[in-house]
Structure formats: C-alpha cells, structure tokens
Design a protein around this nucleic acid. Structure first.
Lengths: 215, 215
DNA sequence: TAATTGCTATATGTATACATATAAGCTACT
DNA sequence: AGTAGCTTATATGTATACATATAGCAATTA
C-alpha cells in the first residue's frame, strides 16, 4: 500500500492546480484530516513536503497557506525556468536519440492539433507534453526534476484563461522552430529559441498578475 | 522556541557535511530519537524534509539512508550547477550594486588569503563565500535557493582532501577573472568564465569518485 | 544440500493523546 | 471611552501507543 501522505500530496496538488485552492487559502490540519479521513500525522507530512517544494508556506504557529508569489518572485521563477528550459533544449539537441525525437515530435503534433481546434485546456496539456519530452531528451535526470518542480509552481498561476487564441498560433510556430533546431543538432539555436520562447511567456506576467487580483 | 525538527535538520546536515555520516549510512528513527532526546515525530519530519531536498533517500519500508549518487548523477548535478552558476554570474554583472561588489571582492580576498596560506579547509569556506556573494548579487532569490540546495548536495562529496595545492592557485586566478568580468559589466564573459570554472570542478569527478570507493 | 515456506522480530506508517504558544475577546481601571 | 492586562479557546508541536508490512532466519522437504 502506498503511503497516505503521498496520496494526499497528489490530491492537494490537484486541488491547487484545478483552482479549488487559491494562493493565500489556509490549510487547517484538522479540517484536512476530517475531509480525507486520515489522522493529522500524514496531513502534516504532506504539508511539510509541499512547503519544501515551495507550493505552500508556513508562518510559525499560524499554519500553512497556499504560497502567494509576488510579481518579483514570479519573475525570478520565470527567469530560472527560461535558463533551465534553454539548457534542456541544448542538451536534447546534443544527445538526441531516435526515441526521444519521436516523443518530441509527438508532443509537437499534440500542440498543432489543439491549436487547430482552438482548444485551450487541451493546448495547455500538449504544451506540457512537448516541454516534458525535451526535458527527458536532455538525458539529465536532475534537470528534469528541477523543471518539474518549477512547472508545478508556475502552474498554480496558470488556471485563469490567460491564453488568447492568437498566442496559440505563435506558440506553435515557436515550438516548431525549437524542434527543428533540436533535430538539426543546432544546439545554440535550440537554446536561444527556447529561452526567447520562455521569456515571452514571462513577459505576459503583468497581465497575469492583474488578472489574479480580481479574485 | 524554534521547532525541534528544524534544529535536527541543521544537526544532521552538519553530521553529513563533516563526514560523520557517509553516503549509504542508514538513519534509524528510534536511534536518532534516543541520540537527540526527542520523539520520533520531529525526527520523521526532519528526514522527510531532507529527502525532499535530495540529501537522503528512502526505500519504502526500509528507512532512510544518506543518498548515494552514481557517477552519472553527480555529473548531471555539476552540469546543472555550472549552468545556474553561470546564470548568476551573468545577472550579477548586469545588476551589480556597490554593496554587492564589495561582498564579491571580500569573498575573493578570502580566497587569495587562504590560497597563500595553503589552508585547504579555509579555502573551501572562502570558495563558498565567493560563490554565495555572486549568487546574492544576481538579485534572484529563487536562484539563490536553488544554488544553495545544489551546493549542499555536492558538499556531501567534498569532505575528502580533493584539493591539490596547484589547483588552489588556478582556482584563484579563475575567480579573479570572473570577478573582473562582473565588475566590467561584461556579462557574456562572466557567464562563460563561471561555466568553465564549474566544468573544471566537474571534470575532477572521476578521481573524486575513485577516492570515495576507498571508504 | 539447496530451495521454499512460514514464523518472528523489527522498523516504518498511522492514530491519538497531551503540551504549549498565540490570538482574540472580555473586563477592569484610568 | 479607550487601553492594558488577563483569560480562554484553538491550532500547532510533540510524545506515545498501536497497526502492519517486510526482511531475515530457521525448519522441513525434495
């Protein structure tokens, strides 16, 4: 049997990503214990873990809340994400194998299809798949882990309908260019294109933050 | 009063960094509870936290051990460290303030002094101070946190006398060049020099790993 | 003699009881 | 009426008791 705390982490993450729990919402141990039908012990372990990964924050004697990021913190996060995504693209281009090539192409195709259908939620999924394929293609496990954590933190702020249809087209074009660079073993271009791609995402932060304040 | 688990984390980290606990050593909850005079609860929280930061690892139902890194994992770690250190150097050069400049210069001086004295443990400390100064100068808090975690993980493998005196001289020269590039606002050079500097560290990995196997 | 199966010891995972610090609300005094 | 101090309620932090799964070992059989 899997550990209860691990299950809890998954469920809490899901509630955060789906928007049920918003930044700033408080998590009371007794509440959660009743809701999930377990004792406070695994709840505490799950909270502790999520604090360590930066999804939650605690004030001493004041419990845990879903972490609220300031504009600067979000910006810092995107800056690091852009750097590491660029690194992944570079390494993927240098170490490309046939199977990884296939996975990247598959992710790309999902993006194209979702964009054609103008299906934004689907595009969000496809986008993650495309990036994850590149992460794995880098061959650096530790880099994958880091990017996964960063993605999780960014995703907390991704639930509002921030994608405009026009942007989808552009995003697909950028993805295509990145994939081409990787497949063409042009590691420098892959790195630069990916970084630019991420920076554009980050540049939309101000409007993202303004949208958040409506809640 | 600070939380017991936080104190425990510090103490356990210290034991790992000082070599009392070596990679592969098992941590039994009951043992630790007796040794530190607390119950198993804060012990478990501390272990959990250290697993999250990658210092320990657990097998289900088999408890925690100090994480053992394979050669590839250490290599991956250095690869990411080099990228992020390079990023920090670049940002430091772009956002340099007077006070940060002073801190970097201070760290550099400590390195020079320790190298002159051929004091290897002191040099290790000075080295960390120099790098930490650059991390902070980047102005990116999240980047600082990441680099701190990575440093901690690398440091587990840093207790053996791996520094030869000749290397100290070279390391100082490299530090000087990096500092010059940062101070001269030459962000591209700062990035490249720092990456090369870190890569050289990583290149010494094979001998490092061989040394480990003696234990 | 080797392998398989079952038992037992032990360490992890969970629940609950207890301690304690903080915050809020009330009362009394200025 | 406002503020200061005390009291109480509540949520966090810790300890301990209980449940359970796994690993090691031994005994029996092929």
């Amino acid at each position: 049997m899997a550990r209860a705390s691990d299950t809890l982490i998954e469920q809490l993450k899901h509630e955060i990503f789906s928007g049920l729990l918003k930044p700033g919402d408080q998590l009371e141990e007794a509440d959660l214990a009743k809701r999930f039908g377990v004792s406070r012990t695994p709840i505490r372990e799950a909270i502790r873990s999520m604090v360590d990964t930066g999804l939650l924050e605690t004030r001493p004697r004041k419990g845990a809340i879903v972490r609220v990021l300031t504009a600067k913190e979000l910006n810092d996060l995107f800056e690091v994400a852009a750097e590491l995504e660029g690194m992944a693209a570079r390494l993927a281009s240098e170490n490309l194998t046939a199977s990884h090539r296939k996975m990247i192409q598959c992710g790309l195709q999902q993006c194209v299809d979702a964009a054609d259908a103008e299906d934004i939620p689907e595009y969000a999924k496809a986008n993650l798949a495309f990036h994850a394929a590149i992460h794995h293609a880098s061959g650096n496990e530790w880099l994958c882990d880091q990017l996964e954590q960063i993605q999780a933190r960014i995703n907390v702020y991704r639930l509002m309908p921030y994608e405009v249809v026009g942007r989808l087209e552009k995003s697909v074009e950028e993805h295509q260019a990145i994939a081409d660079a990787i497949f063409g073993k042009n590691s420098k271009a892959a790195n630069a294109l990916m970084r630019d791609h991420m920076m554009l995402q980050g540049a939309r932060l101000p409007s993202l933050l303004r949208a958040m304040e409506d809640f």
